[in-house]
Design a protein around this nucleic acid. Structure first.
Lengths: 188, 188
DNA sequence: TATAACATGTAACAAGTTACATGATTTC
DNA sequence: GAAATCATGTAACTTGTTACATGTTATA
C-alpha cells in the first residue's frame, strides 16, 4: 500500500540532491495558491512573472501532466458552454508536502549559477585592448537597460511581496555586474 | 562551391541570435590555444577550469565530434606505441573565425541569468519568519563557503589572466548575494 | 467575416546527463 | 596480480525548445 512520497526519479540512489527543479516548484507554488488550468497558468506566468520565468506553453502542459501522473496535483475537466474543455489542476496533499520541502531546500541552497559569459571572459585577453573595452561597454549598456526594465517592473509589486524580493535580489546582481564592469573598464 | 560559413543550425531563420553556446566557445578557445585529444581536454577542464565548467566526458566527446562534422576542427588519429588511439583535434580556419565571432558576441551580450532560487524567493513568504530567517542564514553560510573556495582558487591564477577575470567576476556576484542576504536578514 | 483570444496538445529536435562498455598500460 | 589511469565512446533518459495541428468563441 504505502505509496512512496517521492517519485522514483527523485528518491534516487543515496544522498543525491534532488534535481532542484525550480519549474516544478513554481507550478506547485502557483497551484497551491489557486487552482488553475494550463492556459491560465501559462498566461499568468507570461504576464505577471515574465521577469522570473520563461516557461513555454508546451513545457507547462507537459509538466502539469507529469505532476498529475506523479499524484502531486488533481485534475478536473470543466467546460463552460461549448468552449473547449479546461483541465483544472489543484494541489494534492502530496503535492503540498513536496512544495514545502522543495521550497525549504531551494531557499537554503546556494544556486551554483554559472554565467555563460564567463567563458568569453576567460578568452577576453585574446582580443586587443581597444576592442575588448568596446565590447565591455556594450555589455554594460545592455545591463543598464536590463536594470531599468526590472526597476520599472519593481514598482508594480507591493513592498514585502515575494516578487519584490526576487526583483530586489536580481537588481543587486545587476548592480554588482555593472560595478564590476566599471572597475574593469577603469583599470585597463 | 561556396561553403556556408555557419552550420545550418546556426544560420537559422532571420535575425535569430546564435544559440549562445558557451560550451562550444570553450572548446574552440581551448583548441585554438593548443591541439588536444578528448581525454586531455576533459581533464584540463576538470582540473584547471572546474570553477567555470562542468562539462561531462561524453558531452565533450560528442561536442568534439560535432565540431568536426561542422568543419570547425580537424581531427588526426595518433598513437604512441600500443596505447589506445588518440584523436587529436585542432582548429580550422573556419573554427577560428567562429571562435572570434562567438567571443565578441558573448562578451558584449548580457547573460540573462535566471537564478533558480528566484522561485523559492518568490514563495518565501509562505514560511513563517523564523524558519525563513533560518533558511536564509543557511544559504548565506553556503555562499560564504563558496566564496572561500573561489578565493583560494584565485591565488593560483596570475593577475590579468582570463581565469582571474572570471573568478573576480564571480566573486563580485557572490559578494552581492551575501550583501543582499545580510540586508534582508537585518530587515526582517 | 476575418482575426484575435481561448484551450489543448503532438512531433521532431537539441543539449545535456548517467550508467554502461571496452580495452590497453602504468603503478602499487 | 589488482587497481588506477589512459582513451574512446554508446544507449537510455531528462528536460526543454520550436513548429505544427485542431477546434471554439468573442470581437472588430
Amino acid at each position: 500500500m504505502s505509496e512512496p512520497l517521492l517519485s522514483r526519479s527523485r528518491e534516487m540512489s543515496q544522498g543525491a540532491i534532488a534535481s532542484s527543479d525550480s519549474n516544478e516548484l513554481l507550478l506547485l507554488g502557483l497551484l497551491d495558491r489557486q487552482r488553475m488550468h494550463g492556459y491560465e497558468l501559462h498566461e499568468f506566468l507570461e504576464k505577471r512573472l515574465g521577469f522570473l520565468s520563461d516557461l513555454k506553453k508546451p513545457t507547462a502542459y507537459r509538466l502539469l501532466d507529469k505532476l498529475h501522473g506523479d499524484g502531486l496535483v488533481d485534475r478536473q475537466s470543466e467546460r463552460s458552454g461549448n468552449r473547449p474543455e479546461r483541465r483544472v489542476y489543484s494541489l494534492t496533499e502530496k503535492g503540498k508536502a513536496l512544495f514545502e520541502s522543495l521550497l525549504r531546500e531551494q531557499l537554503a541552497l546556494p544556486d551554483r549559477v554559472s554565467y555563460p559569459s564567463s567563458v568569453s571572459l576567460l578568452f577576453a585577453d585574446r582580443l586587443d585592448v581597444v576592442e575588448r573595452r568596446e565590447l565591455l561597454r556594450k555589455r554594460k549598456l545592455a545591463f543598464e537597460a536590463h536594470r531599468d526594465t526590472l526597476s520599472r517592473i519593481l514598482e508594480f509589486h507591493p513592498e514585502g511581496s515575494g516578487a519584490r524580493l526576487v526583483l530586489d535580489h536580481d537588481l543587486r546582481h545587476i548592480d554588482a555586474e555593472i560595478g564590476w564592469l566599471n572597475e574593469t573598464l577603469n583599470e585597463s
